[in-house]
């Protein structure tokens, strides 16, 4: 699975960083989310799922690897 972050939708709440700080970070200039690891390890999936649940802007989702 591959993580997708829609930076246009992101409202820089920081919720994803709090849920999975090894996977998400925030840009210095405006706090918008950036991906540290697009391909989460199996043991990170729970935290990523948590980030998806709490993202207030619904800006994070998972896509199968085969999708470009």
């Amino acid at each position: 699975m591959r993580i997708v972050v829609d930076q246009d939708r992101c409202v820089a709440s920081g919720q994803c960083v709090m849920a999975a700080e090894e996977v998400f970070d925030q840009r210095d200039e405006d706090g918008v989310a950036v991906l540290l690891t697009p391909q989460p390890a199996d043991d990170q999936l729970g935290d990523v799922q948590q980030a998806i649940t709490v993202c207030p802007a619904r800006a994070i989702w998972l896509e199968p690897d085969s999708v470009a």
Binding site: V11, A12, G14, V17, M18, E21, D25, Q26, D28, E29, D30, G31, V32
Partner: peptide, 17 residues
Amino acid sequence: HARLRRMVTAPFAVKRI
């Protein structure tokens, strides 16, 4: 809203805080 909010989001980023 997004335009104005983004002007003040940087100082509230988790690591800055």
